[in-house]
């Protein structure tokens, strides 16, 4: 279909974007890669009054290693993250996750900031951000990932607040992200991530609840010396996944356990 009419403005800086959002007021949305927003608009399931296009803010497109931190600008495209040597050296799991998002065309446009701000339960970056205690930096503050993903599509972002950067810890040790889906370019039915960090394991899960999940029970069990197959049994502790067309809650919990075990075992 044809999207409903809206106003459009291009921002060339974060300040300008923020003031445009303020000017348009309620019903304005930020346009980055647009892969979630534009289809919704075409089906008229979303009818924003105005779009603030931030694709022209060039200084939000960067990847920087900064001591023990990896800083990624919000407008950095998936393809850049996938191929960046800096990411591959400092946080290879993130490059692998980026390469598993959508397809070539989607990766050429989609941005990390867009995925994080949209907070879809099936998003892959949020899982990595949460389990590694990443920081979500905005034009107003720094929000720990733990506080950022509040509910399905729900974050603490204010209407004129824009995600500018995601800051991860450097972690180049053994890691694996398994994204289980029917077709290669689909969203995860369930995703499981394992990353060795500072001698311990970090375990994250995608699409098993309204927000990404950090499987602390698994991490703790591993810390106490449990074998991967024993520890992974805890991956579904406390989960209440939603029923959807591809999996019922029981199956998702089962997948969480199986995929977590495999992720730990296959981590390199």
């Amino acid at each position: 279909m044809i999207p409903a009419a809206f106003e459009y403005a291009r921002a060339s800086s974060v300040e300008e974007a923020s003031s445009l959002l303020n000017r348009f007021g309620e019903g304005a949305k930020v346009l980055a890669g647009g892969h979630s927003l534009v289809p919704l608009m075409r089906l008229r399931l979303a009818q924003p009054k105005a779009l603030v296009d931030i694709n022209g803010i060039k200084d939000l497109d960067y990847v920087k290693a900064d001591g023990s931190r990896l800083r990624i600008g919000a407008l950095t495209r998936h393809v850049t993250i996938q191929r960046s040597k800096v990411v591959r050296d400092n946080l290879p799991i993130l490059a692998e996750v980026a390469g598993e998002i959508g397809d070539n065309q989607v990766r050429n446009l989609g941005t990390i900031g867009g995925v994080v701000a949209y907070a879809d339960a099936a998003g892959d970056y949020p899982t990595i951000a949460l389990m590694l205690d990443a920081d979500i930096v905005t034009n107003q503050r720094t929000i720990p990932a733990e506080d950022f993903f509040q509910d399905l599509f729900t974050t603490p972002l204010a209407p004129d607040e824009i995600v500018t950067e995601v800051v991860f810890p450097v972690a180049s040790g053994p890691h694996k992200y398994i994204k289980f889906r029917r077709r290669l370019f689909d969203w995860a039915i369930v995703g499981a991530a394992a990353q060795k960090l500072n001698g311990g394991w970090r375990i994250g899960l995608t699409n098993v609840g309204p927000t990404p999940v950090r499987a602390k029970a698994v991490e703790d069990a591993l810390q106490k010396g449990a074998k991967p197959e024993e520890a992974a049994e805890h991956a579904s502790d406390g989960l209440e996944p939603a029923d959807d067309l591809r999996a019922n809650p029981e199956y998702k919990k089962h997948l969480a356990r199986v995929l977590t075990r495999r992720a730990i075992q296959q981590a390199e």
Binding site: P39, R182, L184, F185, L245
Partner: peptide, 25 residues
């Protein structure tokens, strides 16, 4: 193709839910 029993509306209303195989499948 799946329909909702209550409303008679499609649950697979776009090509995101209805899965046509790609070259990878």
């Amino acid at each position: 193709v799946l329909y909702d029993h209550e409303t008679g509306q499609l649950k697979t209303g776009t090509l995101r839910e209805y899965m046509v195989p790609t070259a990878n499948e």
